[in-house]
């Protein structure tokens, strides 16, 4: 059974259909890649799942429960975490205090022992997991002085802190060097081993296709193709949508 059942999701902005009648099943413990040209509605699609935008039509069911109409914080507390494309850290707070905010959510508090104990230590553990060197001063630096690569890791760390079951990563690799991407990929693979479900929007197709179980392709708000990475690679329609992009 699918952990996320998305049916007929539609949203228009004025006369433009940003997302047009998209239905997808996301199965538990798989990695779903979402690709498509710029402006094809990928981020709007994710915003509707996480409650930041209310769709005109359609339904999203998480483990059988309807998500449409719920506020973002409630959806997050149910176990759907999302990382933003434009990094959104708490700029005035040190990196490790950024993680204390999700640790204070109802979801984490409800888990065994989540409300007690030293949050600082838990936050530092999580930061180490995503590649903040523990002994160094990096976890203690204010987010405003951290380089872009660390801010992306911080987004990932927020989702790990939330113990999210479904992680939605919106262009996590954008703006990162190949070395940085290769150091983040094992973290994502580890999350899959732990049984998480991951949805990734990505333009770095090479890296995505290596780890994705399923891929859907967006163009002009419509889902034009769904399938295994290999099938997507060979599809003519997809090549046309991504004209000029060597895969």
């Amino acid at each position: 059974m699918a952990i996320l059942e998305i049916r007929n999701l539609t949203k228009s902005f004025g006369g433009i259909k940003a997302v047009d009648d998209v239905s997808v099943d996301v199965h538990e413990n798989t990695l779903l890649g979402i690709i498509g040209p710029n402006g094809s509605g990928k981020t709007t699609f994710v915003n509707m799942i996480t409650g930041f935008i209310r769709p005109d039509k359609g339904s999203v069911r998480f483990k059988g429960k309807e998500l449409i109409g719920l506020t973002p914080y409630k959806i997050t507390n149910m176990g759907i975490g999302r990382a933003f494309q434009m990094v959104k850290p708490f700029f005035h707070l040190p990196a490790f205090k950024n993680i204390i905010v999700p640790l204070s959510s109802d979801r984490v508090k409800a888990t065994k022992g989540g409300g007690f104990g030293d949050k600082d230590a838990i936050a530092l553990d999580i930061l180490e997991e995503v590649g903040f060197e523990r002994g160094s001063s990096v976890p203690y630096k204010t987010a405003s002085v951290l380089p872009h690569g660390y801010l992306k890791r911080l987004e990932l760390a927020r989702l790990i802190a939330l113990k999210a079951e479904v992680l939605i990563l919106d262009e996590l690799f954008s703006g990162l060097s190949i070395a940085e991407v290769t150091s983040i990929v094992p973290i994502i693979e580890k999350l899959l081993v732990e049984g998480k479900t991951i949805i990734m929007i990505e333009h770095r197709l090479k890296e995505l296709f290596r780890i994705a179980d399923n891929v859907i392709v967006f163009n002009f708000g419509k889902k034009i193709k769904e399938g295994k990475p290999k099938e997507i690679l060979e599809d003519e329609e997809v090549k046309k949508a991504y004209l000029g992009v060597e895969v």
Binding site: P89, F90, F91, L93, N98, V101, S104, R158, L162
Partner: peptide, 19 residues
Amino acid sequence: LIFVSIRDNDRATMASGIN
């Protein structure tokens, strides 16, 4: 800390499961 985080970025605070 949560209050400061709301000023810094209210959308990210919502996405951290905070009302």
